[in-house]
């Protein structure tokens, strides 16, 4: 069993009309089985309303399953005695950079998680320094978060999670509200983190460019996991992805179109360099 393991996970919520009367139930997650090994980088893709964020919130016990079970670090999230252990094991970074920063100074915000865990003061300072350094925000430690850019705020939020020393970090669309520069900043920080500390990274996103370095990719649609494999396998199935309303990276798209026109290119080209190399080899 991996760090996150779900069996037949179901999440239902009531559908309501204008007056708030229940008129039925919606299934945001419908029978999901997933197993994420410790130390891996897993991406979960899906368009809006596919249930990917709902799944992410289950990994932190922010939502509890209506059916089935999810274990995080071997603990059942439904067990009220384990809730704080689950949240400590699986840190979570959210979409909106402004709404997840609690402190009025960068370093105080990073210290918020360890404070809640009851970590001794000296140890908090050490953790704050280390985690700010690992996201490259150490020089901003005394600044007000209001003065930072979106990408910098998200890096502070990531540092805040690292300072809690989780085994796994769940990033719920961390780049959705950022400009392209901020998006790159955040993804680089995540990749660096992955390389330096042996944490499991679960990245939820709808930008496919961000997932080409993942070990495994899950594609969700309508509450189900519809595709699962390495990025190369997934991006080799362009038509299928399009059916799930996903945008394929431009390079992959171009390679696919060229292949359809008769060029003998391999399936699942992810990077520009790969395409260049494949094209050069054609001659």
């Amino acid at each position: 069993m991996g760090i996150v393991h779900a069996e037949k996970l179901i999440y239902e919520y009531d559908k309501r009309d204008e007056e708030g009367n229940v008129i039925g139930t919606n299934r945001a997650i419908d029978g999901v089985d997933i197993d994420i090994p410790q130390g891996s980088f897993v991406a979960i893709l899906g368009h809006n309303g596919s249930g990917k964020s709902t799944l992410a919130k289950h990994m932190n016990a922010l939502l509890l399953p209506s059916g089935g079970t999810i274990w995080v670090d071997g603990k059942d999230t439904k067990d009220p005695a384990e809730i704080w252990n689950v949240r400590q094991a699986a840190g979570m970074v959210f979409q909106n950079p402004d709404n997840q920063i609690i402190g009025t100074v960068v370093e105080e915000d990073v210290g918020f998680g360890p404070e809640n865990l009851g970590v001794p003061t000296d140890e908090i300072w050490k953790r704050v320094e280390n985690s700010l350094r690992s996201v490259g925000m150490l020089e901003y430690r005394k600044d007000s978060p209001n003065k930072l850019s979106g990408g910098q705020k998200q890096r502070v939020a990531i540092a805040g999670v690292i300072a809690m020393e989780p085994k796994c970090i769940v990033l719920d669309e961390p780049t959705a509200m950022l400009d392209p520069n901020g998006r790159r900043e955040v993804i680089l920080a995540v990749e660096k983190l992955k390389a330096e500390k042996n944490v499991t990274v679960i990245l939820i996103t709808h930008y496919m460019e961000e997932v080409i370095d993942a070990d495994q990719v899950f594609v969700m649609d309508d509450g189900h996991i519809v595709m699962h494999g390495t990025p190369r396998e997934i991006f080799g199935r362009v038509d299928e992805l399009k059916a799930y309303r996903m945008d394929v990276p431009q390079v992959t798209m171009l390679a696919e179109e060229l292949r359809k026109r008769g060029l003998s290119l391999p399936r699942g080209i992810l990077r520009r360099e790969e395409l260049v190399e494949a094209l050069c080899r054609l001659r």
């Binding site: 932190n60 009851g118 970590v119 003061t121």
Partner: peptide, 16 residues
């Protein structure tokens, strides 16, 4: 976000 970062009131909390 506060709950996700294990905030559960002042009890058992240390100060930075």
């Amino acid at each position: 976000a506060m709950e996700a970062r294990c905030y559960h009131g002042g009890e058992g909390r240390t100060r930075m």
